[in-house]
Design a protein around this nucleic acid. Structure first.
Lengths: 193, 193
DNA sequence: TGGGTCATGTAACCTGTTACATGATTAG
DNA sequence: CTAATCATGTAACAGGTTACATGACCCA
């Protein structure tokens, strides 16, 4: 249930509308959790029904009306509870459909696989670049907040991201080299025979 | 739709029953994709309705009856199609609820966070160990298969796993050190004042 | 006699994805 | 004039999780 708890965490920084939450989520949490706008609105409804949130309707003339959500005591308790609990698999299991394709890549020829890996590498490089801009966003949020210690933890998650993509790029490079070598050996032996 | 395609990939190695597929899945693909037994049976049904699979009922006296599934031409085509296509986000997006907790860890005190990270580190070390046993399993499957090239790709995914957990452990170590330093500074200044 | 293997599932529920809808205002 | 921003959603579907059910055989 991480989307719900992500929203609780953001609302703990201050009351926000669904629209603002959606943006805050995408600015800060989307590196390690993705959510559609429609899903965020749905979850806010559910969470209000659970008693974790209340909202104040704000009527506007020039713009659409909006709902300003705030944490209830129950919502805050739920956030604390979630932060304290931990389960064996949390954060260690990987779900990666690209690796599944690699697993079955014996079906494709080596040159195709080299292309696939090069494409993967360049997409990782792009993500790595876009993560460096996250630091700027984190900074702009940090100004709005009293407790400056939070920035340590925000930075830690961004750093995880950088380490991750660097590792992916290194792995892809090693694989590309290995496949290129295998390809050369093949063509050599073909040429010899 | 990676579960379906994982099952297609396994059946491409040879016909199997649901029970055998479940075990093969857990032995080989579960590092990067997890699936419940019940989900596998459900997906096999769906895939049969899609015309990707056929099954032969095998009646047994001493043991429960079973269904031996095989790829159809359509199923094989679907596997090929999936292997060839690629989308921008595939393999680069991360979904990690542990990182979300870290993000909000400003709510907890430093000592609690150090414990959480140490626990995470030891769980990663356990995964890293269990991945080394995967190599053995891969070897035992490799014997049953004609095309020995496949082992390169199987090995590549296992290696990704090792690199990943090593990176996680290194990241956790760095974080633990940083928090311990912060904690010491805090108690020093408290002691001085 | 109790637990593991063999072999299949159903049902209910929760979570995530995709596509669509509305309609005003403002900036380039 | 067109695209983006503001602000909310609904509906349908796909995919994943949890709990439960059956029943025989085999090994310690």
């Amino acid at each position: 249930m991480s989307l719900k708890h992500g929203l609780l965490g953001l609302l703990n920084y201050g009351s926000m509308t669904g629209y603002e939450l959606d943006k805050a989520f995408k600015d800060s949490l989307s590196f390690f959790w993705q959510a559609q706008t429609s899903q965020i609105y749905r979850e806010l409804n559910t969470m209000e029904n659970l008693g974790w949130l209340t909202f104040e309707m704000i009527y506007q003339d020039d713009k659409p009306n909006k709902k300003l959500y705030s944490l209830t005591k129950e919502g805050h308790g739920e956030l604390e509870k979630w932060l304290m609990e931990s389960n064996e698999k949390e954060g260690v299991s990987v779900r990666n459909s690209f690796l599944m394709k690699i697993f079955f890549s014996g079906e494709r020829n080596i040159n195709e696989n080299i292309q696939v890996l090069k494409n993967y590498r360049s997409r990782c490089e792009k993500e790595l670049l876009s993560l460096s801009t996250v630091n700027g966003i984190v900074g702009s949020y940090a100004e709005k907040i009293e407790n400056k210690e939070k920035v340590i933890y925000w930075g830690a998650t961004a750093e995880f991201g950088c380490c991750y993509y660097e590792m992916c790029i290194k792995w892809a490079n090693d694989m590309i080299k290995r496949l290129e070598d295998a390809e050369n050996e093949n063509s050599c032996s073909e040429w010899k025979s």
